[in-house]
Amino acid sequence: MAISELPADLLADLLSGHRQVLAEHAATGRLPAREALDAYRAAGRRAARLGVPLRTLVDGALAAGEGLPEALPALRRAVSALMEGYERAQLAAIREEEQAWREFVDDLLQGRAERLAERAEHFGLRLAGSYVVAVARGMRDGDQDRIERDLIARFGSHNVLVAVRDGLLVCVAPATLPAAVGEFTHHVRARFPPGWRVAVGRPQRGPGGVVASYGEAAQALELADGLRLKADVVKAADLLVFPVLLRDRGAIEDLVTSVLSPLLEARGGHEPLLETLEAVFASHGNQTAAARRLGLSPRAVTYRLERIRRLTGFSPDDPTQRFTLETAVLGARLLGWPTSPGFGR
């Protein structure tokens, strides 16, 4: 914006008294007093709020000093004070925008729906369609800024939202843009230290859908940890049965206690036997494949399964008993059996 493009008298109003300050300095040699410098800073802040370019403001201040070469020291201080006030106003505006962004993200992920769509548009996001939320655990300082910068550079700020919530790095992307979640996972894999994990919620529609997908992704992380899954990336859609199991905690606790408690009496402890069952279930009943998973001989796996059958009365070779055993093992992992306070030995 050139000086000629400013509204009439705006620049003159911002620099009111400036020519007089310069003239007084030229006549007396006295530099501007503190009150005058404070007025310049206030003018700089006001110019920033009004959207007057800093270059235009400085040009106007310099123009007022033409013909007064002896006023250069005062002019230098005046311009410095104008720029200081301007920069402070810009910094305050940035902080206000950052605060508004943090509040918007918190409201979005918690489902506080007040003017969410309107506020989203302010940040370049459109919430009318379906969105997918991915969360990553294991973030270090600085990871958020780098990943956010890379994703926005590729997909645009109107397509992806990257934020931190409850210690998790969160990525919100349109369901029609699955590459964004893939790219998010790629950057997490490249930057996070060992032990990271990404969980992906199901596509959901609208602002409320963002909340639902985020909740599913966060729960999928907890389930993956409880089940001791080895996968670095888990999908909520693949774990839908587990929230169903946990809805009746009392029934699951009773199943786990009834079926697995005899394993607590096994020599060597219950854990090797649980791990054997998990390996067999993961291998679809193939004991040779389970042995490879465990680093054991097939004979050792057969021996352990026989011990389980003798102790519990359940055998993974029987379809009905296999389902009961597998459900009990999953419940045990999810509920932290046998050390959880809900269980007794």
Rank of each mutant, 00 (worst) to 15 (best):
R102Y: 06
F104Q: 01
A117S: 15
R154P: 09
F155I: 09
C171Q: 02
A71R: 09
E96Y: 04
F155K: 10
G111P: 04
A78T: 11
V160Q: 01
V79W: 01
R88E: 15
V135H: 04
A134P: 14
C171P: 05
V132I: 12
A128D: 14
L127R: 03
V160S: 02
F104Y: 01
A153C: 09
V79F: 04
A89S: 05
L75S: 10
T185A: 06
G142R: 12
V133K: 06
L68W: 08
R146W: 13
Q90F: 02
G142L: 09
A179P: 09
A78E: 09
A117K: 03
V132T: 13
Q144H: 11
E118S: 05
R77D: 14
R95F: 12
G138D: 08
Q90A: 08
P69Y: 09
Y86N: 04
E98F: 03
A92F: 06
L109Y: 01
G67K: 08
P69M: 02
L75T: 07
R137H: 06
H187C: 01
R140K: 12
A153G: 13
G142T: 05
T185G: 07
R88V: 15
V170M: 02
D145N: 08
T176V: 02
G67N: 07
P69D: 00
A78I: 13
V160Y: 00
R165F: 03
A113C: 10
G124W: 00
G142N: 11
A117N: 05
G138T: 11
E114I: 02
R95V: 10
H122M: 05
G182D: 13
R88M: 15
L161S: 14
P174Y: 04
L108V: 07
A100S: 07
A81Q: 01
P174W: 05
A117D: 12
V79G: 10
V79N: 11
R165E: 14
E183S: 10
T176W: 04
E96R: 05
A100G: 06
D107G: 01
S130I: 02
D145Y: 08
D143P: 12
